[in-house]
């Protein structure tokens, strides 16, 4: 398992997760619609996802991606620390590189914490049935909207959710463009376009994910 392989795994799984997040944030937009529309649409959507065979496969891929992404990033970070050895007494790396790029590990850890809590709150309840039973809406779909709506009216949760979208944004901004480079995209002009795309993507996702709970809270 050499260093190219490890890096490629992190990059490929990262890109896959980027696609997933794009889909996820699109679905979240439903939440800001007027309540009646939002509830039926959101529940119908989540039911469709749960019942589709294809999506189940994708879901497993997603779990695997998260695990591989985290495990390999962990191995790489460990090995890189070891390669570096003694640190400089003074290091002004902010002058030569972005803060996010220097702190991908920390950012990733925060996101991981978020994901775990997020999964406990939604996925564990809806899919595994752990905790309070979730009711159904008028169309007979599991009322995921209600779960979301309740959580997003808990100010602590909204705060937690929205604030942790910041590290996500930083992580994605550096991660997206780097993943492409790791996988061998080196066209010079393309890279500057890619840098812009990464920024826009990261902004859309972190602002998108971050602002929806706040809107819902005040709804």
């Amino acid at each position: 398992m050499n260093l190219f392989f490890r890096k490629s795994i992190v990059a490929a799984t990262g890109l896959f997760l980027c696609i997933f997040l794009m889909v996820h944030v699109s679905a979240n937009i439903i939440l800001v619609f007027p309540e009646a529309t939002a509830r039926s649409l959101y529940n119908a959507y989540s039911t469709t996802l749960r019942e589709s065979m294809l999506i189940s496969i994708v879901a497993y891929l997603l779990y695997l991606s998260i695990i591989f992404h985290v495990v390999y990033a962990g191995i790489i970070t460990y090995k890189n620390r070891n390669s570096k050895g003694v640190q400089n007494t003074i290091n002004h790396n902010k002058e030569n590189s972005s803060w996010a790029s220097q702190n991908m590990g920390v950012l990733g850890m925060l996101i991981l914490i978020f994901i775990i809590i997020h999964l406990v709150n939604f996925w564990a309840r809806v899919k595994l049935g752990i905790g309070e039973t979730v009711g159904t809406d008028m169309a007979g779909n599991i009322d995921v909207y209600e779960v979301t709506f309740t959580l997003f009216h808990n100010p602590y949760y909204v705060l937690f959710y929205s604030i942790l979208m910041l590290p996500l944004g930083f992580h994605l901004h550096h991660g997206l463009k780097s993943a492409f480079k790791t996988l061998g995209f080196y066209h010079k002009k393309g890279l500057s376009v890619l840098a812009k795309i990464s920024l826009i993507y990261a902004l859309i996702l972190s602002v998108g994910f971050g602002i929806i709970p706040i809107i819902v809270y005040f709804k």
Partner: peptide
Amino acid sequence: NFGSCTFTAACEME
């Protein structure tokens, strides 16, 4: 025992 690149791009600057 060189580490792997995570594209901080500090090298490019220095």
